[in-house]
Design a binder for these strands. Structure first.
Length: 931
RNA sequence: GGGUGAUUAGCUCAGCUGGUUAGAGCACCGCCCUUACAAGGCGGGGGUCAUAAGUUCGAAUCUUAUAUCACCCA
């Protein structure tokens, strides 16, 4: 093995091996495995997208769970696939066409869609290649795409069924209209943010000339569509005006003054202009009062022919200016206030969304939501962490009908046809519609131009990918799936809709648990975004990137070029030497150890560097093991085959600790605490296996004679078996490095298999936990630590051999010393260890305690008496404080009588230990004084 | 305005159903290139657990209020 861990040379090779051997595929030939199936559906990434840090985090979680369950013996499927991402993809391709100076309308619908398919072929494997780089063990032969034939069939089937049950309807409603994209978008695709704006106060004169009202608005151009002015029914200021009419300025229409509870008398002037065609609240009020709905906008949000001629054709903001000017000239503009208001923008186009009256398709959601709420209430679906169910309820209880039609070209075209009379026919295809409704060929049918919201097909993902509506073996085996891993941002878009559709069409929940993870942010806690220039590409962390390339990447194609300088400066400052190559395993470990439930991750370069170092540590520890075991007798088969093999304290201890670690890792993975699992692995590997066990093994391996053969065999056996177990334990989180090392180590443990990833996951064995060994090892560690502290405290060179004298030892201490003298000498660099008799003179020493036993290092020429005195005094003071606290506690009648017995006993034990220690420290101080 | 979460060492975070002299990594200080690893070893310093009140024999942990921050929904 190379001296330095080099992820590059191993990762690519192993992934190809795994994939080409179909190790990722579940076994469907054996029906007995049906009962222990495990399945995760990947949230399908946009087919034309590329991997970002959020994906990398999420995929690490899913792959860790998948590999864990596969090794546990479950029949495991991680289902891959991509999403056609209607608007996003269409926009990408449209931009390409725009660059050629054409629009999609110049190209035409069919040709445009053809171009998108071409684009998909070209760029669609970017993200799947990147998923492979992450080590994701997805079953690639099953890869699906939301627009492939099978899934499209499922979409039609669902649409037709819902329509036939009156759960899909077509209606003229106010929708969120994107005037740039020319399509309706759902509530969820609209992002409202507070922006600076104005509040215009306008005077509306009464028709009878008896006075006027002042209305305030943030969108004055909508006055062209006003059909009433509303006041609160109890508002005394306006009582006399209710029922009268107003002469609407500029339009010269007469509109009524109405009373409605909705009006907040405190807000603005207490009078609200009502524009039912262009405001959601006004629309509702218009329905209540039977007001006319006057649409004044074109699809571009320019003024249409329903408005006075003067304004027709003007863009909404041009019209706004013109209207303000005209009002001002007519002396009807009272004042303009600065105002912060919520501005709704399309999440794709960034355009200000207008409420707009159009014909759209809707899903009647209430009948679907009810069972979906119940499934969570009944515990059929559990959220992890649990509190997300509140967010889910909150939304589900206030859910509105879902607008599923989009006026774009890329997507599943709505399976509805119209005849010339305007009748609607819904069916799988035109032929089916004709047969069902007995329509002759001479009747012209025209398919609806709209396509379905992308989330409509995503909602079917958990069962459509498994072959639904066919009754497939895959559905039978893997549905309901086990867990959905997702960010909270799409609980509404996607999770809730999958639950509703899953229950509706399969009668079962689509997944039993929803694991909600946090967002990956930059090191300052900022969201990563192109415009901030703080985006990290997971592939760059794996492969490394030169500073210049990184700067170029971050500043290319900026929306606001003036930001480029700032970004360049910040990037050069943060990444002075670019980013080194950390490898996939280090990246995955970084994600895993930070995956505390429901918390965002601040991505810190220090962390990933630390875990790259951890990989190196594991690598080098393995080198040590191999160096000392290859070509030697490693006791393959264990005690059963080698009756004389003997185990040292260290062997028994590390074996015990391995069991405890395994238990903790398994428990943690079962409860989605990847952070605790990774933490346990890290600590065991570094702080126990490497820092103590490997060091202790050296003293056994250094004595190469006949009488030590059984002990060497035991140690070699333990070195190998613990490492082999540790590699399997770690594999789900770090697949590559564990496979690479395991290939060398497994044969030494008598295992000859092709891959670690199909080996069983380690199981803790309680019989292998040796409490006596754990206690004795603790004694040994205290001993070594005591010597090291003295050595370091007095600047004694690490290499200088020391003499240790022991006092006040019990029989156990004596026995333990006898057992471990060799190891102690080696670890603490001791020349001799000697018991002092009562009668012996005690030389000037610095001392440490191991329980009751005193450990003395003679000071002659090494240690400064004053310094030692000071050190003792300090420790005595600390100890006295501690004792005082304990005594206070134990003299408290309430504590002794009310606290559980074991707690009291523990405190008593602590007190007596501390008192013993104090006594011993005081004696030592006395000795120094008397000298 | 409503909701959710957070606040623990200089930084990034653990601390599970209340009982540790409050932990880790990074950073910091000192010593050391000891044949697995300097991407390392050994030792060390550093925290009134946001604030206040309460429950309790006992609170980082439970309750309430306040402050600050973040996100979601109006």
């Amino acid at each position: 093995m190379e001296k330095i861990y080099n992820p590059h040379s191993i990762e690519q090779r192993w992934y190809e091996t795994w994939e080409s051997n179909n190790y990722f595929s579940p076994d469907l030939t054996d029906s007995s495995k049906k009962n222990n199936s495990y399945c995760i559906m990947i949230p399908p990434p946009n087919v034309t997208g590329s991997l970002h840090m959020g994906h990398a985090f999420q995929d690490t979680i899913m792959d860790t769970l998948t590999r864990f369950h596969r090794m546990k013996g479950d029949n495991t499927l991680w289902q891959p696939g991509t999403d056609h991402a209607g608007i996003a993809t269409q926009m990408v391709v449209e931009r390409l066409i725009n660059a050629e100076g054409k629009t999609r309308h110049d190209v035409g619908r069919d040709a445009f869609i053809e171009k998108i398919w071409d684009w998909k072929k070209e760029s669609g494997n970017t993200i799947t290649k990147q998923l492979r780089r992450m080590g994701a063990s997805l079953d690639w032969p099953r890869e699906r795409f939301t627009m492939d034939d099978g899934l499209s069939e499922a979409v039609k089937e669902v649409f037709v069924q819902l329509y036939e049950e009156d759960l899909i309807y077509r209606g003229k409603r106010l929708v969120n209209w994107d005037p740039v994209l020319h399509t309706a978008v759902s509530d969820l695709e609209v992002l409202s943010e507070e922006e600076n704006g104005h509040f215009w106060h306008m005077r509306y004169p009464l028709s009878d000339g008896s006075g006027s009202l002042i209305v305030a608005t943030t969108r004055p151009e909508t006055m062209l569509g006003d059909s009433a002015v509303a006041v609160h029914p109890d508002d005394e200021r306006f009582q006399s005006m209710i029922g009268k009419t107003i002469k609407l300025p500029l339009s010269d229409r007469e509109i009524p003054i109405i009373a409605d509870d909705y009006v907040d008398p405190e807000f603005g002037t207490g009078c609200v202009k009502i524009t039912p065609a262009h405001d959601f609240n006004d629309y509702e009020m218009g329905k209540r009062h039977d007001l006319p709905i006057i649409n004044i906008f074109t699809v571009d949000a320019a003024i249409n022919e329903n408005a006075p001629e003067k304004y027709r054709g003007m863009d909404r903001y041009v019209a706004r200016k013109s209207i303000i000017k005209d009002l001002d000239e007519a002396d009807l503009l009272v004042k303009i206030e600065d105002h912060r208001l919520m501005v709704p923008r399309g999440d794709r186009s960034g355009a200000v969304i207008e409420p707009y009256l159009t014909d759209q398709w809707y899903v009647k959601i209430a009948p679907l939501a009810e069972p979906a709420i119940k499934a969570v209430e009944d515990g059929d679906i559990k959220f992890v962490p649990d509190n997300w169910k509140n967010t889910y309820y909150e939304w589900m209880n206030n859910i509105e009908d879902w607008c599923i039609s989009r006026q774009i070209w890329w997507g599943h075209r709505i399976p509805a046809w119209y005849d010339d009379a305007g009748n609607v026919y819904v069916g799988h295809d035109e032929q089916a519609v004709r047969i069902k409704h007995k329509l002759n060929d001479d009747i012209q049918l025209r398919q609806d131009d709209d396509v379905l919201d992308t989330w409509f097909s995503s909602a079917l993902w958990p069962f459509s990918t498994l072959g639904w509506p066919e009754k497939t073996q895959e559905l039978d085996t893997f549905y309901p799936t086990n867990v959905l891993v997702t960010g909270f941002d799409i609980i509404f878009f996607w999770v809730a809709r999958m639950i509703m559709m899953g229950l509706k069409f399969t009668g079962e929940v689509p997944f039993k648990e929803v694991y909600v993870h946090g967002l990956v942010r930059d090191s300052h806690g900022q969201k990563m975004s192109k415009s901030k220039g703080n985006v990290l590409d997971p592939i760059d962390l794996i492969d490394g990137i030169e500073l210049e390339t990184l700067v170029a990447k971050r500043t290319k194609g900026m929306m606001q070029p003036q930001m480029a300088k700032k970004i360049e400066k910040a990037t050069r400052k943060e990444f002075k030497d670019g980013i080194p190559s950390f490898g996939t395993d280090a990246l995955r470990f970084t994600f895993a150890i930070q995956a505390t439930t429901g918390r965002d991750i601040k991505f810190d370069m220090g962390r990933i560097e630390g875990y790259r170092n951890f990989c190196n540590k594991l690598w080098n520890a393995s080198r040590y093991v191999l160096m000392n075991t290859e070509g030697h007798d490693c006791g393959i088969g264990g005690l059963e085959k080698h009756k004389n093999m003997s185990f040292s304290l260290a062997d028994k201890w590390i074996t015990s600790r391995l069991q405890e670690t395994q238990k903790q890792v398994i428990d943690s993975l079962n409860t989605y605490r990847l952070d605790l699992a990774a933490q346990a692995i890290y600590e065991f590997t570094w702080n126990e296996y490497c820092d103590w066990y490997l060091e202790l093994s050296k003293s056994v391996l250094s004595i190469d004679n006949e009488s030590n053969r059984d002990a060497q065999q035991g140690t070699r056996y333990t070195l190998v078996s613990v490492l082999e177990n540790l590699l399997r334990l770690t594999h789900p989180i770090m697949p590559y490095i564990t496979e690479e090392i395991w290939q060398r180590v497994a044969p030494l443990a008598g295992i000859s298999k092709d891959t670690i990833m199909l080996e069983p996951y380690p199981q803790p064995d309680a019989d292998k936990v040796n409490q006596a060994a754990l206690d004795e090892m603790n004694w040994l560690q205290q001993f070594v630590l005591g010597v090291r502290q003295i050595r370091s405290g007095y600047d004694i060179k690490p290499g200088k051999p020391l003499i240790v004298l022991l006092q006040n030892g019990s029989a156990i201490d004596k026995e333990r010393l006898l057992n471990n003298e060799l190891m102690l000498k080696k670890l603490a660099r001791l020349e001799t260890i000697k018991w002092l008799e009562e009668s012996d003179d005690v030389p000037e020493s610095s001392t440490a305690l191991v329980g009751e036993m005193q450990l003395l290092i003679p000071m002659a020429g090494l240690i400064d008496v004053d310094a030692e005195r000071e050190r003792l005094n300090k420790e005595i003071t600390n100890n006295q404080k501690f004792i005082k606290g304990l005594e206070g506690k134990l003299s408290n009648e309430n504590f002794v009588s009310r606290a559980p017995e074991n707690v009291v006993a523990l405190e008593r034990q602590k007190l007596s230990d501390a008192q013993g220690k104090l006594k011993s420290l005081t004696e030592q101080l006395e000795k120094l004084k008397s000298l």
